Amino acid sequence: MPFTADDVQNELKHIQNKLSESIQAVNEEVKKHGEIGTKNKEALNTLEEKIKEATARVLELEQAGTSQSDVDNAIKSVGAEFTDSQAYTDFSAGNTTKATFAAENNAVTNDEAATYTDRRSGVLGLAMRKLRVLDVLPKGSTSSNSIEYTREVLWDNKAAETAEGPGAAYPESSIQFETTTVPVRNIGHFIYVSKQMLEDNQAIASYIDGRLRYGVEYRKDLQALRGNGTGQNLKGIFSSGSFTNATNAGQNIYETVRRAMAQVELADYSATAIILNPSDCADMDLLTGNDEHFISTNPRAQNVKTLWGLPVVETNAMPAGRFLTGAFDMASQWTERRGVVVEMSDADGDNFTKDMVTIKATARAALEIYRPISLVGGDITAAPSTP
């Protein structure tokens, strides 16, 4: 009766089970009596003959053109590897009290392996900037397309001690206000993607969604700090604050920032944070004294970035060589009518006939500057100097 690969596989499994039992029995016998008994020797010899027979059947199947998938690589090699091993020879001859065997499959190759690609999951994206500017600003919401607010621009305090009686009068103080309106601007972008890509690769579809959202957040962060107020740009902090450079000749970056903080205090506000470019932060961190020790930080410590007791916001949105400090908790507010929304459609131009999809991410936001005088910054005109 012809035998099949399944028959050989089942027989080898049975032999392997019997072999494990025999090895255990031999080990116990040697441990107890110091040698292998006749019964166990005969059992091992019988298993050896069965392994040789099974191995011959495997070779016969291979010569008959049986596909590789019919006989698993690991099973095909068990018989040949075991009977050819020195460990088995020594064990069956009684020269050792313990046999260790591991099927390695080193001699068996799979030609089909070269046809498969080892696919890594996900998408390897480019760098994403840390978005930090909006972290220091209060947040608000609106349902309108513009925001109007009234702010005090002058407070002339004439309060003084006043005599009693006829002819005495209290002095008159004055307050001036102005009404400011800021528009809610649309911020967004879009890309074209093939419909097949969205349907066939969910990882890329999810990545595109995240990238588009990030692109809008990136622009919001930049506009809050550096929007110039022209065209459809928001009017950012640097276009609205009191940026009289407080730097005097010969000052270093530490003194520059400290004088700016004093300017905020002199306006009766309290600075809450400092925004710097990473390169300027590095200049400060790497500054050493005459003893070559770092002045502002310990490289091996868990450092929280601070300067003059205020947290440092380190971001590439701030140009190198510039800085900003101020009472961010009351100086301005970032207001959104709609957060970031991602939409897609094939009804855009000739998308339908080309199997393309337009994916768009948008937001609507405004920036109010309530107290410009509480924001101070400008150029860092001198590099750090060694004390």
Rank of each mutant, 00 (worst) to 15 (best):
176 Q>C: 09
170 Y>K: 14
184 V>E: 07
34 G>W: 10
343 E>T: 09
278 P>M: 12
184 V>R: 03
18 K>A: 14
214 Y>A: 12
167 G>C: 04
333 Q>G: 05
157 N>L: 01
155 W>M: 05
117 T>R: 11
189 H>P: 13
171 P>E: 12
289 G>I: 12
70 D>I: 00
242 S>G: 09
186 N>V: 04
67 S>A: 12
80 A>M: 14
360 K>R: 01
96 T>S: 05
364 R>M: 02
36 I>P: 00
358 T>P: 07
310 L>I: 06
63 Q>C: 01
178 E>Y: 08
64 A>Y: 15
213 R>I: 15
293 H>P: 03
174 S>L: 04
171 P>L: 04
70 D>Q: 14
69 S>T: 08
111 D>G: 01
352 F>N: 02
258 R>L: 08
97 T>W: 06
85 S>C: 13
357 V>Q: 03
345 S>G: 11
259 R>K: 15
318 M>Q: 10
32 K>M: 04
160 A>R: 14
307 L>D: 10
298 N>Y: 03
238 F>R: 12
16 Q>H: 00
106 N>Q: 11
118 D>I: 13
170 Y>S: 11
160 A>C: 13
79 G>V: 01
246 A>I: 07
170 Y>V: 02
178 E>Q: 01
135 D>I: 05
184 V>P: 08
35 E>P: 00
196 Q>S: 13
164 E>L: 15
236 G>F: 08
223 Q>N: 04
33 H>T: 09
297 T>N: 09
98 K>D: 09
300 R>G: 13
104 E>W: 11
190 F>G: 14
195 K>M: 13
348 D>N: 10
332 S>L: 03
231 G>P: 08
242 S>T: 04
158 K>A: 01
362 T>Q: 05
60 E>N: 15
346 D>Q: 02
346 D>L: 06
120 R>D: 13
349 G>L: 13
279 S>K: 08
123 V>T: 15
89 T>C: 05
94 G>Q: 07
370 Y>F: 04
178 E>C: 09
178 E>K: 04
11 E>M: 06
342 V>F: 06
222 L>M: 01
156 D>R: 06
230 T>C: 06
384 P>C: 13
369 I>Y: 12
